[in-house]
C-alpha cells in the first residue's frame, strides 16, 4: 500500500515538474492557488516579490537593506537563504545580524518570522541570538504591500521542516 501511494505521488510529482515552465519566468501555480513545498514553487510564488528589493540593482534596494540575501535568481536565492546569515541590518534591527535565515525549525526561522506574524510573535532564538525577536524582526510583508497566502506559509514551513532542499 505504502509503495503504491509513494509511486502515485512520484508520478504526480514528475508530471507536475514536467509541466512547469522555468521558475524565473512564471509562477508555476499562478492563478491556481497551489503552492508546493519545493523551493521552485516557493520562489515562483511569494518569494518572487523579494527580488524587487533584495537583489543587486533592484528598484527597491537601499543602502540600509539586509545585504546577504540575493533573490535575483532561484539559484542565488537558494544559496543565500540556505547558507547565509543576516547582515547589514541597522538601527532597531541590528540584533538580528549574524542570525541564519533558515533556522533549524520553522519556529526558529528568521526567514519565516519576517513574513509570518505568529512566527514572529513567538520566536525565541536564545541563547545564541536573544536579541533577535519580535521587537527587532521587521514585518517584511508591509514593504511588499501584500501578505503571503496560507498555502505559501504552510508550504514554506513544510519545506524548512523537510530540510530546505534545493528542489
Amino acid at each position: 500500500m505504502k509503495m503504491i501511494v509513494e509511486a502515485a505521488l512520484a508520478v504526480g510529482l514528475v508530471s507536475l515538474l514536467a509541466a512547469c515552465p522555468p521558475p524565473e519566468e512564471t509562477t508555476p501555480d499562478a492563478g491556481s492557488g497551489m503552492v508546493e513545498a519545493t523551493f521552485t514553487s516557493l520562489y515562483g510564488d511569494y518569494f518572487g516579490n523579494c527580488k524587487q528589493c533584495h537583489a543587486p540593482g533592484a528598484p527597491g534596494r537601499t543602502s540600509d537593506i539586509e545585504t546577504t540575501l540575493d533573490f535575483s535568481s532561484k539559484a542565488t536565492a537558494y544559496t543565500t537563504i540556505k547558507t547565509g546569515m543576516a547582515a547589514g541590518l541597522t538601527g532597531n534591527k541590528t540584533m538580528c545580524n549574524g542570525v541564519p535565515f533558515l533556522g533549524t525549525t520553522p519556529a526558529k526561522s528568521l526567514l519565516l518570522a519576517v513574513i509570518d506574524q505568529p512566527t514572529r510573535q513567538a520566536i525565541d532564538l536564545s541563547p545564541q541570538y536573544p536579541g533577535c525577536d519580535i521587537d527587532t524582526i521587521t514585518d517584511g510583508t508591509v514593504k511588499v504591500g501584500k501578505q503571503p497566502s496560507t498555502a505559501f506559509l504552510a508550504a514554506l514551513k513544510t519545506w524548512i521542516t523537510n530540510g530546505a532542499l534545493n528542489n
Partner: peptide
C-alpha cells in the same frame, strides 16, 4: 508532500 490550496492570507 502536500499541495495546499489558497484560501486567504492567514
Amino acid at each position: 508532500m502536500l499541495i495546499a490550496w489558497v484560501v486567504a492570507a492567514a
